[in-house]
Nucleic acid binder design. Structure first.
Lengths: 350, 350
DNA sequence: CTGTTAGCGCTTTCAG
DNA sequence: CTGAAAGCGCTAACAG
């Protein structure tokens, strides 16, 4: 394998054999017969370099297959070109979508994201904050505004810019990007009440892990209360949201409570499962029973009866967070909040 | 904000004010009245340390809120505790699932994954290889076995262990973990032929981006040929797979070709869309038309008629890749291949 | 346009 | 059990 590499100047070859390490700037400099800093400048396109030396350096780089060492570069320049990102999950598709927005904003900036997954656990999140901060990121994106006191202290104390995303219902440390979940729940209630629904049921998943789902629920209940209504019944799945559980939990709810005219789900995964249950049970969505989700996932819109739901803008949220963070390296005097909003997708199930 | 931090010894406070940088080992050492190396040892639990000094150091760390600098640590020890990972996409759920397997294998090892997304583009992948290698990862995981010559050379030359995952149909650089897509396609064909299907159609997505889908297709055609059969018709969507396109492309195929008794889809996303089309068009899966997917996604199994498909083991693939890589730091003499296999899920659509 | 001199913050020797 | 000295590979800050 090693022998497949291009042949190197013997001195470099020897050093490599001894070190097992990679080629360094010094190696390139020696071959190009310039100083290390000149190589460094060429590679970073910084400062004026004579075209002839530039070529010589680039040739040398090619020749020895030099790959810069960012650990060293970051240390020397105290600028890691890293952004730390913490999300609760990868299996819930909304988070990969946020990451995709982050990726798109980071493209061509030279920044790399280092991603941590907290698994909806605040203590895990705290550990991740510490370990990501150890990479000296130049900014940090973290889902949610709820953190352990220690995690919060580390984030505040780090001095780097922090975007707390997906939620703007509380005051952020520095910047919040997302939308109000309480308001989304409230708007869901208003929309359905306006449609004439009166007998509300709710199908949800584990709240202790997903407080944003709870905020939406609370907003919904608030809208109902204002209209003199209340949730007639609700059923919660003890675990993360999924199509399968949406299906079974709706079945359970309906088996004990037949008087509902609409069911609001904690999100589209659950609601899609609900639609599947209806299909199996011969219940016609909207006609026999209204169903309403949250997120506006593609899958829900591709259903034979497209899901009535609220679309949140995950990609935009990720993208905006990064754009804001990179725009200004110092924290603002006042915490800032950016609402990326949501839209009602009327669909065909409510 | 800054003033909310715990009060620091005045000397440290002054240095911080000057540097805007974080607290360093030296600061902790001064406060604990030990040398830097002792602090370092305590933090890395390395070498014997008197319990009393250990406590003194830990107190100091707490007091000043010290966060180690991994750039410096990695540089000094030439060990980054980083694993580079490159996947083609985050929006196709199978990749987040692989990442989750990687994450689970990395948990409690002290390693961090740095993730790059190639967007199914080999040139982008090449850039990612270079930029991830610059972080001096101790191992690298990359989806697929197809790379640009330059990317391949960098991977080989890096000396670090490389796992090429999701595909074992070609010879890997170092280690391959996944399953044979050609074989999966072949087995799909055998399974359906044994079921009595004879008139095959195919609905797929963009092959240029997803060569594993093409391999499955080729395997399918091979099985058909062995049985003296051939694909009667096929329709390809010019873009990534999605439920929506599976739906419309099946509709298009059926509108021009009514003699099919089974349609094989490039994956479960497409197949789920196909099932949705059938629901809308009054076609009864399995009875009127067989449908077969690939991946074994949850959504397919939660359908009113669970999808007949092949389940690939994404989580296991990610997890196994990391376990193998961390088990042995040197590349094996011979490239190694690990088959994480797949299972037929009979379902109810074929 | 190019080079010299000092580190960045930590860990690896090697001593004691 | 603890420390002093010497870098890791690169870049900032000055020269020239």
């Amino acid at each position: 394998m090693k022998s497949d590499q291009p042949k190197l100047t013997s001195s470099v070859g020897k050093r490599l054999a001894q070190r097992r390490q990679g080629v360094t700037l010094a190696d390139v400099a020696r071959i190009a017969k310039v100083s290390e800093i000149t190589v460094s400048r060429v590679l970073r396109r910084q400062g004026a370099i004579a075209e002839s030396t530039r070529e010589r350096v680039l040739d040398a780089v090619q020749h020895v297959g030099y790959v810069p060492n960012r650990l060293a570069g970051g240390l020397a320049s105290s600028g890691s070109k890293l952004v730390g990102v913490i999300v609760p999950s990868l299996t819930n598709i909304v988070f990969p979508e946020v990451l995709d927005g982050i990726r798109s904003a980071l493209a061509d900036t030279g920044f790399q994201a280092v991603i941590g997954v907290s698994d909806y656990d605040l203590n895990t999140e705290e550990e991740l904050v510490a370990s990501l901060l150890a990479w000296r990121p130049e900014a940090m994106v973290i889902a949610g505004v709820e953190h352990t006191p220690v995690a919060r202290a580390m984030l505040e104390g780090s001095g780097v810019r922090i975007a707390e995303i997906m939620e703007i219902d509380s005051q952020p440390i520095d910047l919040a990007v997302g939308h109000s979940h309480r308001q989304a729940g409230y708007d869901t209630g208003r929309y359905l009440i306006d449609k004439g629904y009166r007998r509300f049921g709710y199908v949800g998943h584990d709240w202790t892990a997903d407080r944003r789902a709870q905020l939406r629920h609370d907003g919904l209940v608030m809208a109902l209360a204002e209209a003199g209504l209340e949730l007639i019944d609700r059923s919660l799945h003890d675990g993360p949201s999924s199509t399968a559980s949406g299906r079974s939990v709706l079945a359970a709810l309906l088996s004990r409570q037949s008087a509902l005219d609409v069911v609001v789900f904690s999100n589209d995964d659950m609601a899609t499962g609900g639609v599947f249950h209806c299909m199996s049970a011969g219940i016609v969505p909207k006609v026999d029973l209204g169903l309403f989700g949250f997120n506006g996932l593609d899958i829900g819109q591709a259903l034979p009866t497209p899901l009535s739901t609220l679309r949140s803008n995950r990609f935009l949220t990720g993208r905006t967070a990064i754009e804001m963070l990179l725009r200004q390296r110092d924290r603002p005097m006042q915490p800032e909040i950016i609402d990326t909003g949501y839209q009602i997708l009327p669909g065909a199930t409510a």
